[in-house]
Write a protein that binds this DNA or RNA. Structure first.
Length: 276
DNA sequence: TCCCAGGCAAGGC
DNA sequence: GCCTTGCATGGG
């Protein structure tokens, strides 16, 4: 890391664990490094070190506010955990993933990342996103920014296929053209989750699951409950009703966990994937 | 080799 | 409307 000595210090790590935050599948732009993680967001980079005594975010001093917001440092996760504690499976899942936080990511970045994520695995998603930045992102002097909608819109499906995106290649090209052509991602900030979800689903490659992930990680709309293959497997733990329809599952899980559904989903997802 | 991965879209009923 | 199928590619 060559960004100097500026550090954001997190003294109490009861609600902050870098490994859990980054490896719980909400972002694909990080690299495990010696003693921590290098994290990328938009056109910025930081290094997160986690030790016994606490965590430190090493970054450029002018990016202090950006990273405090990105890591959601102003939110009281103790209060969230207390609200969820009595709900199904939370007595197991919250202690297992107690250091998870929901990152406040960029709309566009979350959209592209989760279009890539469809029927894909985490190592491969990370690789595709890394190549996307490497080839189309602005050179920031040692690393690459996430590509702009304009930069991505100028490439066609064949380009993204060569990058290894598989059958998602056309989704990437078409979604980029839609956003570059005027689809207003920023306007959805002011919509409720159901309205924003319907709007996002008009984009190619955005179905129910991808839309929910974009809303949760790209808009911090924490009342959504993304249902993926892991949550489908877990559903029987929470609702022993034999339900197999995904939309019904989603509705029932939303009803159980309410406005904190996004957090509950993240604790559940992390524990299941890590076999905790 | 085979199954699976933070699913989506299209086509058949 | 709901259900099934095809889809690219790499990990385990």
């Amino acid at each position: 890391m060559t960004d100097g000595d500026y550090r954001i210090i997190i003294e109490d790590c009861g609600d902050f664990d870098a490994a859990q935050i980054l490896e719980c599948g909400q972002t694909f732009r990080y690299r495990k490094a010696d003693g921590g993680y290098t994290v990328y967001a938009r056109d910025k980079r930081c290094f997160v070190a986690q030790g016994e005594g606490g965590a430190q975010i090493v970054c450029s001093p002018q990016d202090d506010a950006f990273w405090r917001d990105y890591f959601d440092l102003q939110t009281d996760y103790g209060a969230i955990k207390r609200r969820l504690s009595a709900l199904p499976d939370m007595s197991r899942s919250i202690p297992f993933g107690k250091g998870i936080r929901i990152l406040r990511q960029d709309h566009w970045e979350a959209l592209i990342g989760f279009i890539v994520s469809a029927n894909n695995n985490l190592p491969r998603i990370k690789g595709i996103v890394a190549r996307l930045c490497e080839v189309l992102g602005e050179d920031m002097g040692g690393w690459r920014a996430f590509p702009t909608p304009r930069a991505m819109a100028q490439k066609d499906a064949a380009f993204y296929r060569d990058l290894g995106a598989g059958y998602r290649a056309a989704y990437l090209a078409d979604a980029a053209r839609a956003v570059d052509g005027g689809f207003d991602l920023g306007a959805l900030e002011r919509c409720d989750s159901d309205t924003a979800r319907k709007a996002l689903r008009a984009l190619p490659g955005v179905g129910p699951k991808v839309a929910d992930c974009v809303l949760l990680y790209g808009y911090h709309k924490t009342d959504v409950f993304p249902v993926d293959t892991w949550i489908k497997k877990a559903y029987a733990l929470v609702c022993q009703d034999g339900c197999a329809n995904v939309e019904t599952m989603r509705a029932r899980l939303k009803a159980i966990y309410g406005d904190d559904g996004g957090y509950a989903q993240q604790y559940l997802f992390y524990r299941l994937r890590e076999k905790g």
